[in-house]
Each structure stands twice: as C-alpha cells, then as structure tokens.
Design a protein around this nucleic acid. Structure first.
Ligand SMILES: NC(=O)c1ccc[n+]([C@@H]2O[C@H](COP(=O)([O-])OP(=O)(O)OC[C@H]3O[C@@H](n4cnc5c(N)ncnc54)[C@H](O)[C@@H]3O)[C@@H](O)[C@H]2O)c1
Ligand SMILES: NC(=O)c1ccc[n+]([C@@H]2O[C@H](COP(=O)([O-])OP(=O)(O)OC[C@H]3O[C@@H](n4cnc5c(N)ncnc54)[C@H](O)[C@@H]3O)[C@@H](O)[C@H]2O)c1
Lengths: 209, 209
DNA sequence: TAATATTTGTGATTTTTTTCACTATAAATA
DNA sequence: TATTTATAGTGAAAAAAATCACAAATATTA
C-alpha cells in the first residue's frame, strides 16, 4: 500500500468527518458528501478510498461505520497512542485540557514544563512533571507522540530530548522548523503562516487552485 | 502573476525564516539554506522565487533584507491587517495574548465571546466584546481577518456573522469545515488531523513523499 | 591574472496528482 | 417488470508539480 501525503491528509479529514456523521446517526455517505466536507472532489475521494481497496455501494455510497473502521484500520488510526505536551504556558495548557484529543484516541498522559512554580499552580487532571523527568516518564508511560509548545528557541532542544527518550512523532507549535532523523514523523503548525497564506490569497495576485 | 497554493505556502515559510535570519544579522541566504529551513529542495525554492521575478546573486544567494521586502511586497505580507478572535476560551484566550501575531503584522484588535462573565473576568490589553457587537466592531475597526475559536457547533454561524460584517479571511480552529462564498479565504487548522497524519505515517504503510 | 568553485536561473524532462469519461450496478420509480 | 437515476470504480488523459541538468555569472583562491 502506498499513499501520498495528500491522500493521507484527505483520508484523515474523511475519518474525522465520518466520526461526526456516525455520531449524528447518518448511515451512508457518498463520495460527493465526503468531498464537500473536506474540500475535495468526488473523484479524488473515490480514488483515495479505492487505493485502500475499500469498496462502497452503488447508489448508496459508503457505509459510514464500516468506512470509518476500515480507514482507521488501514491508517492505524484506531489504535490508541499516548502523547505528552512540553511547555505548559498559554497554548500548552489549553492543549492539555482539550478533551477531544482523548476522544480521538490520542491520550495526553503527561505535561512537562521547566518552570516549577507553574507546575505547582497548574490545575489539571493530567500529571505534570519538570522537564528533567522527560526521559523517565516517556519510557514509563509508553509515550509515542510529543507536542511541543515551548518558546521557539527551545523547540529543537526539546525535540532532541523527546526523540532520545523514544518519541517517534512530533507536533510542533513553535515557529522554527526542527531538524529530525528521517524516521521521526513531524508536523509543524505555525499559525502565523496560516494568516500569511490567507493574506497572500486575499491580495489576489495568485491562482486559486 | 500566478502562484499555486504550494508555492504560496512555501513562500510564506521562507518569509518567516528570512525574518529570523534578518534578526540574527545574516545578510545572505542561498536557495539551499532556505530550502533546508522550510523542508523543500533548492530547485523548488529557486523556482518559487523566480516566479515572482525576484533575482539573487551568483555565488552569494539572496540578500535577506531585500528578498524579505520583495516577497512581502508581492504577496502583500508587508501591509498590516486587523484581526479579531471569536471565542475566548482556553484556545482563544491563548491566541489573544500571542504577541507574535502583532510582530508579524497581524493586529488582533478585538476579541468576542458570548459569555458576559468571561468578558468581565478576562485580563488582556485587547478590547473584548459580546458577540452581539461583532458587526459594529468589525466595521468600526476595519477588521479583515477572523479567527474562530468557538466550539465547533457554532463555527459556521460565527463565520457567517463575520463575513456579513465584512471579514474576508478566516482562520478556523474548530474541527468542522465551514462553507463560505468562494471569495472568502479560509484555512482550517484541526490539530487532531495533524496527529492523525503523524499516526498514519508512523504506521508506515504509506510512501514517504 | 587564470583557474576553480559556488550558486543562480531556467528550459526540458520526469514524476505525481488530479480530472475525465465511461462502465457497471443496484436502488427507486413508473 | 421495465425504465430511470444515482453512484461507485477505474483506466486513460490532462494538468500540475517537482526535479534535473546545465549555462551563466561572479566570488574566491592560487
Ligand atoms: N500562545 C499562542 O496562542 C501561540 C500561538 C501560536 C504559536 N505559539 C507557540 O507556542 C509556543 C508556546 O507559546 P505560549 O504563548 O504558550 O508561550 P508561554 O510563554 O505562555 O509558555 C511557554 C511555556 O514553556 C515553558 N518553557 C520554557 N522553556 C522551556 C523548556 N526548555 N522546557 C520546558 N518548558 C519550557 C515556560 O515555562 C512556559 O510555561 C511558542 O513556540 C509559540 O511560538 C503560541
Ligand atoms: N483547547 C484547545 O487546545 C483546542 C485545540 C484544538 C482545537 N480547539 C478548538 O477550538 C475551539 C475552542 O476550544 P476551547 O478548548 O478553547 O473551548 P472553550 O470551551 O474553552 O472555549 C470556547 C469559548 O467560546 C465561547 N463561545 C461559545 N459559543 C459562542 C458563540 N456562539 N459565540 C462566541 N463565543 C462563544 C465560550 O463562552 C468559550 O469562552 C473548539 O472549536 C475546539 O475544537 C481547541
């Protein structure tokens, strides 16, 4: 099996939308329904799904529950994974209390910060620790994913620490690109770049593809 | 001029990195330096830049200050734009106090929430208002960009309200895709999808392109 | 000054991605 | 039951994107 990043991204969105549909009690969804919900075309959706050898039903579309199950299986989205958040400032503490991660199978089981006072003051159900304990806790709690919400100048260092401890996936909210071994999967979310993208498109001297 | 979304995204990242280089005092950057910093190849970077008719210097690369200025000009990233945040909960209030938006030319000039108690309790330098005043304030403060951080079920409604008031760009942090007229530019940032993407790639049964 | 090394700029090529166009199928309807 | 309609599946075509390859330019070094 071999999917492009674009296909993976689309399928992840479809997966999320199927969850919404399922909770609403919707039984079937056509490729066009799915396409609209994720901002793609129906051809692309059908191609993506058929790349995974999943089939739908003529004149009905895809069975919501089944498709979600199968997509989840093929992309390993059904398996729960443990995550931690490093940097419990404004953004990190918001993330720490975002229950949806858990609902979606990403269990945030630890938070880390370098500021001991902050650790004492923080109110949350999730265990929080000083950064000095990253290695120990990641191993003990089998943490696979690291979410980085420290000031950008420390992001690379924290990433290195996380990886040394065994984390294999990193979601980085700082605005620096971190350099990682290529077996580590990494996504950078820089909100400023999203605003820039919007501003650039608004300026209009670009295609709209 | 006509740039693909991919090119725009890369250029936005380059723009941000040039800012970092400039602050460090770095004078020149080669296409390879830029490529590494944004996770692309040097060819692609050179193509992107030359699509904008910007030229570099043989054996030196690009002049950091000049390139930043020119990219900013071509993509309208130098112009300041006013933004507002709707939904001042955990995420929204973190965003409200994120100074970097302002440094990068995005002035967050208003926050809105439906909860009056929250508005009274919130501590921030930015003016906050009840949602009933969205229309009035957006017009009065010339707000072009709306950042949506309300619970997902209200996101579409808030988007409609923002657009009616004149906002033309939307950054949506909720997990629903909002439907918008096509002259409105919109980016959805769903963190769960980023984690899913990482999980899917970790599972390994995908290409690494 | 000559030789060398580095880096841009870009047309050509290759690869990837998307879209099209059409068949097959089965549900709904007459 | 026959007809119509909606929708999946998919090879082929088209479009888009990325990469290559190399000439041109100029800084550096010998
Ligand atoms: N606040 C936002 O809304 C927002 C928006 C976009 C991006 N970000 C990015 O997220 C990151 C955090 O931003 P923030 O606004 O939450 O900052 P913040 O200053 O509120 O919080 C940073 C936290 O990291 C901790 N910290 C500092 N160094 C550390 C280290 N070496 N190890 C562990 N913890 C450490 C601090 O004690 C603090 O609690 C930054 O990289 C920022 O660019 C934040
Ligand atoms: N907390 C996070 O870290 C996080 C992470 C990813 C995505 N999100 C998304 O961001 C959004 C906000 O999440 P949150 O955790 O900050 O939620 P929250 O419950 O802490 O805050 C939501 C805020 O929106 C306000 N609100 C509710 N309805 C409103 C309306 N109609 N108009 C204006 N304001 C309204 C509430 O009063 C509250 O202050 C959600 O869509 C969530 O999915 C949050």
């Amino acid at each position: 099996m071999s999917l492009s990043n674009n296909s993976i991204e689309r399928i992840c969105k479809i997966f999320g939308y199927l969850d919404t549909l399922d909770k609403q009690g919707t039984k079937f969804a056509s490729s066009l329904d799915l396409a609209k919900a994720i901002g793609a075309t129906s051809y692309t959706v059908r191609k993506d799904i058929s790349l995974l050898n999943i089939i739908g039903y003529t004149r009905k579309g895809y069975d919501v529950k089944t498709l979600k199950e199968e997509l989840g299986q093929k992309l390993c989205l059904n398996k729960k994974r443990n995550a931690c958040i490093v940097g419990l400032g404004r953004l990190g503490s918001a993330l720490l209390d975002y229950e949806k991660f858990q609902e979606d199978g990403f269990d945030v089981v630890a938070g880390f910060d370098s500021n001991i006072n902050k650790l004492e003051r923080i109110r949350t159900d999730i265990d929080v620790y000083p950064v000095s304990r990253i290695n120990e806790i990641i191993i003990r709690k089998h943490i696979e994913l690291g979410i980085i919400a420290v000031p950008s100048e420390y992001a690379q260092n924290i990433a290195d620490t996380l990886i040394k401890a065994g984390v294999t996936g990193i979601l980085n909210f700082s605005y620096v690109k971190i350099n990682l071994p290529k077996n580590i999967i990494n996504v950078n979310l820089d909100f400023t770049n999203s605003l820039r993208f919007i501003a650039a498109k608004l300026s209009g001297n670009t295609t709209n593809k």
